[in-house]
Structures are given as structure tokens and as C-alpha cells.
């Protein structure tokens, strides 16, 4: 197992390099000049000398491959550089946004799973029954409404009929610092409610259907019949035998979902003014803040690689046949 993990991590290095090269190229090939953008509106900003100085300061006057090499050399020492926009260290900017995105995503994932698993299991056990049919139609409908459409509708509704305790923008109230610990938690939860619902419901719809379909498959298996023939309780047959065998596909699905924990939902964070990574990404691209964009790509690429590796390890733990194959 250790050998397998080491091998996977070593294989991840060229993958990461490839991702950074592509991102670097795409970002630089996009039209727009960060130096001109920064100088726009500043006194004397139309001076060609100032413009050249700024480009030289950011090393934008060097050939692309040297810029990339320099960036890579700093990356190895975990130096992501400074933002073009406010000149703060890029890592600080990411670190202050990350908890908001990760917190929202983890809470959403927990809530989704807590609902999707029982719903999917009950649907499968009573397949064809009224619960299965009604919920199935409901989930399908939910899945087909994009979450930004639902977000727009919710924001519009709350704007028309304001609800005091239900804010539609930001993550904390203005008086947040003066609140007690409980009050702070309640404040964040209130702010997170609408964006959380919009963030979660497509995943809930997808996961519940996923659990249902996998359960239908495992409930048909011979070992479930054996368990029943041996007089095991219904609960044991359903969870220990049928559901236990859906873990591998479920873990694989979650492994593919986790990267969005970091990138967040750009569109929802912008719509709800949520101070997370998604909004930072959006703003950085708009302002041609190359160091921030590159850092965010690296962070999310690393997380994608780590989460797929974690999912593979978890699958091996969940199914001894996969473990032995590795």
C-alpha cells in the first residue's frame, strides 16, 4: 500500500507540471495587460516609462519560458508571489478566503450525504412504491433546474418580501465582532442558508439517485439472498450487505466531487457575495492578476490529485479485491 501511494504521488508530479504549463499559457495568451490595468486612472499612469518599469518589475518583459521557469522556481519554495492588484502575498489572500469556501462545501456535503443516503436506500428498498415514484420525480425536477436559476429566484423573492433573519448577501453581519460565540455561529448559519441550499440541492438530487440505483443493483446480488436465507434482520441485510457494497462507487463519486470544495461555485459566490475562493478566482481573472490565478490553479490541481488518491485508497479499504489488485 505504501509503495502504491508513493508511486501515485511521484506520478502526480508530471501531471501537476502539465497542468501549470497549460494554465500559464492560457492565462498569458488571454488578451489584456495587467500593467496597463493597474496604471489606468492613476496620476501619470499614461507614461510609457512607468508602464515599462511596472512590466519589468513583474518580469513581464522576459520571454514566456523564462517567466514560467522563474515562477516554478519560486513555487518549489512555496512562494506564490504577490498579487498584482493589492501587492499582498497571494497565499495570504487565498488563506483568508479558503475557510469560507471549504466550510460551506463541507457542511453542504455532510448535509447532502445525510439526506441522500437514507432517501436513496428507502427508494431502492421500496422500488416502484409511492415514495420511490414521488421522490424520483421530485429529484429529477430538482436536478434539471440549474442552481443559479434557483439562486436568482430566491434572491428575487427575498428582495421582494424581506425576511429579517434571512440575509441574501455576504457571510457575516456588520456587528459580527460584537456577538457572542453562539451568536456568531447563528449569524454565519443564517448567511449560509440560502447559498447552502442552492449549493446542495443538485448534489442531493444526484447522490440520492446514485445511491438508489446502486442499491437496486446490490439488493439483487446472491450474497443478499444468502444473508436473508440465514435469517439476518432486514436492517443488517440492507445496510451491512447491500449498502456496504455501494461504498466503492459512492467513494469514487465523492472523490470527483471534492475538488469543487476548493474551487467553490464561482457563480453562486458572486451572486450571494460570499467571500470565498470562487469570487477571488473570478475577480483575479477579471483583473489579470496572474500570480493569484496561477496559485489558485495549483491549489485546486493539487487538491484534485490528492482527493482522487484519497478516494482510491478509501476504495481499497472498502473493497479487499481492489486492495489486493493494488
Amino acid at each position: 500500500m505504501t509503495r502504491y501511494v508513493v508511486k501515485r504521488l511521484l506520478l502526480a508530479v508530471p501531471t501537476l507540471l502539465g497542468i501549470t504549463i497549460v494554465t500559464f499559457a492560457v492565462v498569458r495568451l488571454a488578451p489584456g495587460d495587467p500593467a496597463a490595468m493597474q496604471l489606468d486612472g492613476t496620476p501619470g499612469g499614461d507614461s510609457a516609462r512607468l508602464h515599462e518599469q511596472l512590466r519589468a518589475y513583474w518580469r513581464l518583459d522576459q520571454p514566456l519560458h523564462r517567466q514560467y521557469a522563474g515562477w516554478l522556481a519560486r513555487l518549489v519554495t512555496f512562494d506564490f508571489g504577490h498579487s498584482f492588484v493589492d501587492h499582498r502575498p497571494v497565499w495570504d489572500k487565498i488563506a483568508e478566503k479558503l475557510p469560507w469556501t471549504v466550510g460551506l462545501a463541507v457542511a453542504s456535503l455532510g448535509a447532502t450525504l445525510a439526506l441522500a443516503i437514507p432517501i436513496g436506500v428507502i427508494m431502492a428498498v421500496r422500488a416502484g412504491g409511492w415514495f420511490d415514484r414521488i421522490t424520483g420525480v421530485g429529484l429529477y425536477a430538482a436536478f434539471s433546474v440549474p442552481n443559479y436559476v434557483a439562486a436568482g429566484a430566491l434572491i428575487a423573492a427575498v428582495a421582494v418580501i424581506p425576511i429579517d433573519w434571512l440575509p441574501i448577501s455576504g457571510a457575516i453581519s456588520d456587528d459580527y465582532d460584537g456577538l457572542s460565540v453562539g451568536g456568531r455561529i447563528a449569524d454565519v448559519v443564517r448567511h449560509a442558508l440560502l447559498i447552502g441550499i442552492c449549493y446542495s440541492y443538485p448534489a442531493l438530487a444526484y447522490q440520492a439517485r446514485f445511491v438508489r440505483n446502486n442499491m437496486l443493483e446490490t439488493l439483487r446480488q446472491d450474497y443478499v439472498r444468502t444473508a436473508r436465507a440465514n435469517g439476518l434482520s432486514r436492517c443488517r441485510v440492507i445496510f451491512r450487505h447491500a449498502f456496504r457494497n455501494t461504498w466503492v462507487p459512492l467513494i469514487t463519486l465523492l472523490g470527483l466531487t471534492i475538488p469543487s470544495v476548493v474551487s467553490g461555485s464561482v457563480i453562486l459566490e458572486v451572486m450571494f457575495n460570499w467571500p470565498g475562493i470562487g469570487r477571488l478566482f473570478y475577480a483575479s481573472i477579471a483583473q489579470r492578476d496572474y500570480p493569484t490565478v496561477m496559485a489558485l490553479s495549483v491549489v485546486s490541481a493539487v487538491l484534485v490529485l490528492l482527493s482522487t488518491l484519497a478516494a482510491d485508497i478509501a476504495c481499497a479499504r472498502a473493497d479487499p479485491r481492489i486492495h489486493d489488485a493494488q
Partner: peptide, 16 residues
């Protein structure tokens, strides 16, 4: 009443 089935390779839960 005990029962033994036809195909042993699929009759036990593979993950336990």
C-alpha cells in the same frame, strides 16, 4: 431451515 445455493463464488459478500 438452512439453505445452500448453487454458485458459491457469488454467494458470499465480497467485502466482508
Amino acid at each position: 431451515v438452512g439453505m445452500v445455493f448453487q454458485d458459491p463464488m457469488t454467494a458470499l459478500n465480497p467485502v466482508l
